[in-house]
């Protein structure tokens, strides 16, 4: 029961902190002090109290987009085990629901973008839908590998089955797997080198350009949903990359939180030392991610 409570609290409270840590890391690289760790909480609190501007061309889809995306991400977060603890909702086949909940969010985000009739947002929607076609198979290859490794059909046992000793026995497969997943993690969460979350008006944008017309509480929903998606996909990555276990439930939660903060620092480092890729390179990177996770699947087939 405490575990479920902690799970829920982490899912609800922690996501904006990750963005704060990424921001601090980037500031440190740039030699600045940077905004506070809690800046994104302040931003959300401010946005939720602000007024809304709604375009005349839009319909209810424009409002439904952020709301349904956040709801889908929240439910997906309840399906994923965090650290060494099983998820509150775990059943055979839940990984399919996990993957398709993100697809549901994508469906409504892209439709809300098209609802404004702006060509910029149309562009972002087209790119989002296109790139997802390449990221999705990579995710499913990873799920195949994990399912075959653990012999189960549910995310919780798949993740808790992983351990440091498994890294020693089939490290090559897992290394390829996390290579592919890290690319998917960065691409799906609009991070450099795929997308730049700090600019809003470049023609090379994917995610940010889709939400140009959202404002006020709706924009708060979007930012919060994006942070939660980063949290969920980051936790998925951390569970595989560093399956550290202590045996003590509370200590495990502490390790998990530290690892998540470490991941945020790592993302910040990547964002600081890399330039954004040209748009035409993004599909190639995603295909590479697909191939990496495909290879890892072949390696466990012995």
């Amino acid at each position: 029961m405490t575990d479920i409570l902690i799970h829920a609290l982490l899912v609800i409270l922690m996501p904006p902190l990750l963005l704060g840590v990424i921001g601090k890391t980037k500031a440190a690289f740039a030699g600045r002090v940077g905004p506070s760790y809690f800046q994104h909480y302040y931003d959300l609190a401010k946005l939720i109290r602000k007024g809304t501007v709604i375009s005349d061309t839009t319909t209810w889809i424009f409002t439904a987009g952020p709301v349904i995306t956040l709801a889908a991400t929240l439910v997906a977060a309840l399906l994923l085990p965090l650290g060494n603890h099983a998820a509150p909702i775990a059943f055979a086949g839940d990984m399919v629901l996990f993957a398709y909940l993100f697809a549901l969010g994508r469906f409504f985000t892209t439709l809300a973008a098209l609802d404004t009739g702006s060509s910029f947002e149309g562009m972002g929607a087209a790119r989002e839908a296109t790139f997802a076609c390449l990221a999705e198979p990579a995710l499913f290859f990873a799920l195949i590998t994990l399912s075959r490794m653990s012999g189960t059909l549910s995310l919780s046992p798949m993740m808790t089955n992983l351990s440091v000793s498994l890294w020693f026995s089939s490290g090559a497969a897992l290394l390829l797997l996390i290579g592919g997943l890290f690319i998917v993690l960065l691409a799906e969460n609009c991070r450099i080198p795929f997308d730049d979350p700090t600019t809003h008006l470049e023609l090379t944008m994917v995610h940010e350009v889709m939400v140009l017309d959202h404002s006020g509480p709706a924009f708060a929903y979007i930012l919060y949903g994006a942070a939660m998606k980063l949290f969920v996909m980051g936790a998925f990555f951390i569970n595989i990359a560093l399956p550290l276990k202590s045996g003590n439930a509370m200590l495990d939660w502490g390790i998990f939180i530290l690892l998540m903060l470490g991941l945020a620092v790592a993302i910040g480092v990547v964002e600081s030392i890399m330039a954004r890729l040209r748009l035409v390179r993004i599909p190639q990177m995603l295909v590479a991610a697909c191939i990496l996770s495909g290879f890892s699947m072949l390696l466990i087939l012995r």
Partner: peptide, 30 residues
Amino acid sequence: LLTLVIVAFIGLYLRRLKANPPVPASTWGC
């Protein structure tokens, strides 16, 4: 659960909109 969460979020959002009515405008043309 998904349906309930969606309904709850829509309710919360609409309450915010009621407290702070939206301003109509045209789509931002950059």
